[in-house]
């Protein structure tokens, strides 16, 4: 494992911890899209089916279990926790995420590494992860104001994507047979979706001002 991959995994983990911190400390999930969180839970559940069939390393197994458990915990909190549920911006979170699920599933039936149950769900999870942030970005755009922890949550998620691209470049150079086109192309699409957010994040950071997205 190279340093970029590790940094990517850690920023991914930090983003989830920041989100959990926001929900537990403020008992509020305002500004957080439940639809994006449900998509991430589905991403992890379908991608890590290999927990039962392939063992890579203790690190991989533990991280997979942490990602599954934390994403389910966040969805549970936003749906079931009485105080947290009240703060959910339901009327702003109207992205039709079922279309994303259907489109990604169709694509995974056509474009996969092998036409098997596990490989189709793996491809599905990669495609779905690439677009899962969309409901969250739409919600932020609509509400305009972004609180600090929510801004940092999306920032760390974007950093995770950026580190994974560096990881692929590194692996492409150092490993003779490295070719993961499905993951790489989807990853680049996913990172590009953050570009706009990053621009405004850095502007606000440079001016030491509150993060605001244009309407």
């Amino acid at each position: 494992m190279n340093i970029f991959r590790f940094a990517g995994d850690m920023t991914h983990l930090i983003s989830i911890l920041v989100l959990l911190l926001k929900i537990y400390a403020t008992k509020s999930c305002s500004g957080i899209s439940l639809k994006t969180q449900e998509l991430y839970a589905l991403v992890f559940l379908t991608r890590y089916l290999d927990l039962f069939t392939d063992f890579i390393s203790v690190y991989n197994t533990v991280m997979k279990l942490v990602f599954i458990a934390s994403s389910l915990a966040i969805v549970w909190c936003m749906r079931m926790h009485r105080a947290v549920r009240r703060t959910y911006d339901k009327e702003l979170d109207t992205f039709r995420h079922y279309f994303l699920i259907a489109a990604c599933f169709l694509l995974s039936l056509i474009l996969n590494e092998k036409f098997t149950f596990q490989e189709i769900f793996w491809a599905f999870s990669i495609y779905l992860e690439a677009v899962a942030i969309l409901p969250q970005l739409v919600l932020l755009q609509r509400s305009g104001n972004v609180d600090n922890l929510t801004g940092q949550y999306v920032f760390f998620l974007g950093a995770y994507r950026a580190f994974y691209i560096l990881n692929w470049i590194y692996r492409y150079i150092t490993e003779p047979h490295f070719s993961r086109w499905i993951a790489c192309v989807s990853g680049i699409v996913q990172t590009a979706l953050y570009a706009d957010f990053f621009y405004y994040y850095f502007i606000s950071w440079k001016n030491n001002a509150k993060l605001q997205l244009p309407a």
Partner: peptide, 10 residues
């Protein structure tokens, strides 16, 4: 028929 590589990333 090439086998897919093991998915070793998260």
């Amino acid at each position: 028929d090439p086998q897919p590589e093991v998915h070793d990333e998260l």
